[in-house]
Simulated assay, not measured.
Amino acid sequence: MNPPGTTLVTGATGTTGSRTAARLIAAGHRVKAASRHATSVPGAEPVRFDWYDPACFGGALAGADRVYLVPPVGEPDPAPVMLPFLRQARAAGVRRAVLLSASAIPEGGPGVGAVHRVLPGLFDGWAVLRPSWFMQNFTGTHTHARSIREHGEILTAAGTGRVGFVDADDIAAVAVHALTDERAPGTDLVLTGPEALSHDEIAAVVTEVTGRPVVHRPLTYEQMRDRLAAQVPLEFATMLAGMDRAIAEGAEDRTTGTVRQVTGRPPHSFRAVAARELSRHR
C-alpha cells in the first residue's frame, strides 16, 4: 500500500463509509470523515459536507489526496449534484477517487451510472465499486430490517429471484485496497457474496439465526413502487421497484470472485453476517 495519505470519506457515518473510514484509520491512514453534521468519528477529522452546499466543498477537500464517494441518498440524478464537487476535487489536488455505485447500474446507466462514465477522465487513479444488494439491509436500519424486527416479514417485488447479497464489511475492505494500493484498479468492480439467495432463503436464515419466524411476502411491482413512494421521491421509488422486478427476472442471480481477488480472502456468507449482527437484536 502507499504511504499514508489523507482520504476524504463522504457518507462517513453510513453503512459503507463508516466501515471504510474505520479500516483506513486502523491501517494508519489519515481520514477526514465527512457528514452533514460533522459527526465525530473515532480517529478521524470530522468535517461538514453536504452535496447540495458547494460552500462546504473547499474545507472538506483541504489536504485530501483521495476520496471515497457515496452518492447523495435518494437522488435519482446525482451527476449534476456530484460533478461540480468532483471537478473541484481534481483542482484541489485529489488524485484518486473510488465511487460507490451498484451492480445493477452499468457505466453510463441511470443515476450514478452517469458519474461512473466521467470518473476516468477526472482522476489519475479511480475505481467504481458495484456491489450487489447489502446483507445489512436485513440487519441494520434499512426498511427490510425494520420490517423483520417489527412484523417478522420481508416485502419485495423480487419474487423468487436470487441475489448475490454482499457484506458491507467486504465492500469496505475492497474500498480500502482501491484507495491505498500502489495502483488503483482503474475499472469497475462487481462485488457479491459467495452465493446467490432468494428472499425466501434470506427469511429462512434469519428465522434460524434469531429463533423468530420471518417470512417473505411478495408484492407486485406497483405495490412495491407505491410503498416506497411513501418514503422517497416517486422517481427514486420507481427505480428501486424496477430493480426488484429485474431481480425477479434473474438480473442479480450471479456471484463474482472479486472480493477474494482484491482482499485475498473469501467474502462472508449471509449466515455468518446474520449470526454476527442479528444476535444483538435477540
Rank of each mutant, 00 (worst) to 15 (best):
R19N: 05
D50V: 01
A241E: 02
G161C: 04
A172P: 10
I202K: 00
R30C: 07
H216M: 03
T143P: 05
R66G: 02
R30K: 12
T258A: 15
R271Q: 13
L83P: 11
P185N: 06
D170P: 04
D169L: 06
A175G: 08
P213R: 13
P267M: 00
E150W: 10
V81F: 06
A91L: 11
L189C: 13
V47I: 13
R183H: 15
A178M: 10
V214G: 00
P84D: 07
V73A: 12
V176C: 06
G59S: 08
V259D: 05
D200V: 11
A127D: 06
G125V: 11
A27Y: 03
E235M: 13
A127Q: 02
E235F: 10
S101C: 11
R265V: 10
E195W: 02
D226V: 02
F138E: 00
H268S: 15
G43T: 06
E201K: 01
A175N: 12
R130Y: 05
V73W: 10
I148Q: 02
E249P: 09
F236M: 14
A172K: 04
T13A: 12
R66A: 12
F138H: 03
T20W: 04
P185F: 02
G108Q: 08
R36Q: 13
A79K: 12
T15F: 00
P131I: 01
D244N: 15
V176Q: 03
T141G: 03
S18E: 04
L155Y: 10
R23H: 04
S279I: 09
P106N: 12
E182C: 07
R87C: 05
A230V: 09
P106L: 14
I202N: 07
V94D: 05
R162F: 03
V128P: 07
T6A: 07
G159I: 01
P80H: 11
F270Y: 13
D65M: 08
L240S: 01
A27D: 14
L86W: 04
V259R: 02
E249A: 15
I105K: 04
R271A: 15
R96F: 06
L8N: 04
M243L: 14
L99I: 00
G109R: 03
T39L: 07
A91E: 15
P71S: 04
D169F: 01
W133F: 14
T187I: 09
R96Q: 12
D53N: 08
A91Q: 15
I171N: 01
R282F: 13
